[in-house]
């Protein structure tokens, strides 16, 4: 009996230990982060308006939400919804185009060599350099913001698809060669499934980039309803530090949501069989 009790309390202790091990690190970082934030908020000169006492540059964490009600709250919610739409439409397009390009490039070395430099160029070109061109071509509206999202988020999908398709083990190819399989059967039944963990890895990175794309797009293309990026600019120009920071937090939340969504999708589709599955 005594022995049993002890073993039960031991497992409870083990459980507590595993909880502590899991949350200790993130907890410490959070405390350090908040402490730094408070130090900045109260250490900076002229952070608070002498007249009203409202924060001008950076609100301390507990005063973040004090101006978030009524029209301001509605604005943030609508902007969140619009940015969500822009990132999802952009990400869907980036995924479709990226997959097709990756598959096409995997078919022949010369195609890969021919397209690769231009994809890298697209990846590193500052968006601002092509803003006038894009205004001329698609205007300054939703379509332009989606295009920016696609440009910013497409690269990881192409490169991971290509890498995944190339890394199918040689023996598996031999297996299909012995059955005289054509390129289509090989692609659908061998290469794409084998590449799916890499493709999902790319998708997860691209999901985060799509949110950045949607917000950057807002900065340059202002027609139509404002997304989070445009709203941040507005609050900035009105010196509304609190709402500006909350809007930035909303953008973080949006990125996190998409990242987790694709993590879960990956777990459902690839996690069943893939041995090297990345843990959440």
């Amino acid at each position: 009996m005594l022995w049993n009790n002890r073993s039960a309390s031991q497992t409870a202790a083990e459980y507590m230990k595993s909880i502590i091990r899991r949350y200790f690190g993130p907890g410490v970082v959070l405390i350090v982060f908040l402490a730094g934030w408070y130090a900045l908020a109260y250490g900076l000169e002229n952070n608070f308006s002498p007249a009203s006492g409202t924060p001008m540059i950076i609100p301390p964490p507990h005063r973040l939400f004090e101006d978030i009600y009524g029209i301001t709250r509605t604005k943030i919610l609508i902007a969140f919804w619009i940015s969500l739409k822009t990132s999802l439409v952009g990400l869907t397009l980036a995924t479709s185009i990226g997959l097709v390009l990756g598959i096409v490039m995997a078919q022949a070395r010369w195609l890969e060599r021919a397209l690769w430099p231009y994809l890298i160029a697209l990846q590193v070109t500052p968006i601002i350099a092509i803003v006038p061109l894009m205004i001329k071509l698609v205007g300054s509206n939703f379509a332009a913001r989606v295009l920016v999202t696609v440009i910013i988020s497409i690269f990881p999908i192409i490169s991971n698809t290509l890498f995944g398709l190339h890394s199918t083990p040689k023996n598996m190819h031999d297996l299909f060669t012995l059955q005289r399989s054509g390129p289509l059967a090989r692609l659908l039944k061998l290469q794409l499934p084998a590449a799916s963990p890499a493709i999902f890895g790319g998708l997860r990175i691209s999901a985060g980039l799509a949110v950045i794309g949607a917000i950057v797009g807002d900065f340059f293309f202002a027609k139509g309803d404002p997304g989070l990026g445009k709203l941040i600019t507005q609050f900035f120009l009105n010196s509304q530090a609190g709402p500006m920071f909350v809007t930035a937090l909303a953008a973080t939340l949006l990125g996190l949501m998409l990242f987790i969504l694709f993590g879960l999708l990956n777990k459902r589709i690839v996690g069943r069989w893939y041995e090297g599955a990345i843990s959440q």
Partner: peptide, 28 residues
């Protein structure tokens, strides 16, 4: 009608054992 058994099992990791055994028939 040549069967080839490789040095490593060369199973498709995304398929169950049964679906792996089906693979060659499927390709045919």
């Amino acid at each position: 009608d040549v069967g080839f058994v490789f040095q490593d099992p060369t199973l498709l990791p995304w398929r169950t054992a049964l679906r792996n055994v089906e693979t060659l028939l499927e390709l045919r």
